[in-house]
Design a protein around this nucleic acid. Structure first.
Lengths: 221, 221
DNA sequence: GATCGCTTGAAACACATCCTCATCATCGAC
DNA sequence: GTCGATGATGAGGATGTGTTTCAAGCGATC
């Protein structure tokens, strides 16, 4: 289930958003000031943030640059073009002006959530499969598996490019920061172990081998 | 240099956009109708598409679902919320209403381009037939077939020169990097297997034998 | 220092791919 | 139409790749 954090001090708008988002099947958290938002972010780990600009404590413009790896949609009454441009170029993925049509906002949220996650994000999803790269826990519908550092790096790389085939040399290059001496034969081991752990979650084999090239994520039927 | 395709029949707006985008350092292509856009897309392979809705020939709503793997920003005078929602959920990454502020549009383009990872450049199309040389998957209207390395190399060579006849010796030369021991007799094998796989997609035989010379792609009726 | 977990390496096995050979079908020339 | 040559298809075997299991090295923790 996708998790959305609403950062807005306007209780009426926040309540309305919460109700609409919950109906859509999202999990919702709230923060009512900029400072509270910064405190809540590491705990909540949302998949997307709705950020108001005029906040008590710390303005939204100050909060935005501190959010890394999570897409932020700015929801504000400011209509000035320069504000929009600054915020979009400053890291926001979208900008919606109040008053807004809730259906349009929901559509824009859906667009952002279906797009590829940022490389420095800590949480990834691929169908029912979820990965927390910080705690190195992979899970499917509640069933969890602890991954080793290398396994987590491989799975993260695959989940960052869910449609592409990742060559073995690419994997070796990209995970060499963690374990420099990893060779192709040991890579087989890690993939094998990773597969085994994922298979124990729900019986599906999420990793597909592309013969002579590398590996690729595969969605279960 | 990033490449942007403008699909709009309004010459004034298109010219204005072209000028602004060129100043920003983008390379710009134009298409003035939906049908022209579909023809231009496989050739131009842009990084991003600006799509108007009211187009002669084929409406933008019909063009959008045929664009795969390239982010599309819809630029339209339609302000109805249902239109926006349909298009956003139908694959567009953003929706900007005319008249628009050029600076905001530029910012939104920059956001989409910074999010877009490397568009896989290894895709080829020939009529309804598509080939992804990275994943080695050939597909026709959703039906997919996995190809071997040599089969993929042969099909790629044919699709790179869709109008020409490719001699067998040419094929042997060009795929010798992948499979050095391929002889003329084994080439028959691969073409045969390739034909069989493609035939299972939609029943058509895309590969035509030119007697005494070589092979050539053939479009189904 | 012993234990545990992670990583690495080699070997066995299974399997996809590719080539060779044989057979049948098709085309062109006479 | 017949014949020779070329193209197409199928089966079998050799090669390489992928997967798994087992064992050993290494570092961290207790």
């Amino acid at each position: 289930m996708k998790h959305i954090l609403i950062i807005d001090d306007d209780v009426a708008i926040g309540d309305m958003l919460t109700e609409a988002l919950t109906l859509e099947g999202y999990r919702v958290s709230r923060a009512y000031s900029g400072t509270e938002a910064l405190l809540a972010l590491p705990q909540a780990r949302p998949d997307l943030v709705l950020l108001d600009l005029m906040l008590p404590g710390l303005a939204g413009e100050q909060v935005l640059p501190q959010i890394r790896g999570i897409p932020v949609i700015v929801v504000s009454a400011k209509v000035d073009v320069q504000d929009k441009v600054d915020l979009l170029l400053g890291g926001a993925v979208d900008y919606v002006t109040k008053p807004f049509e809730i259906r349009e906002l929901l559509a824009r949220i859906a667009v952002r959530l279906r797009q590829a996650p940022a490389p420095d994000a800590a949480r990834f999803t691929f169908g029912p499969l979820e990965l927390d790269a910080d705690t190195r826990v992979a899970s499917v519908r509640g069933a969890e598996a602890r991954l080793t550092r290398t396994e987590c790096a491989i799975l993260k790389l695959l989940m960052l490019n869910p449609t592409q085939v990742i060559t073995k040399s690419t994997i070796l290059d990209r995970i060499s920061l963690d374990t420099p001496d990893c060779t192709e034969s040991s890579l087989k081991m890690h993939v094998s172990n990773l597969r085994k752990k994922l298979r124990e979650l729900d019986g599906n084999d999420y990793i597909e081998a592309v013969w002579g090239i590398g590996f690729k994520l595969r969605a279960p039927e």
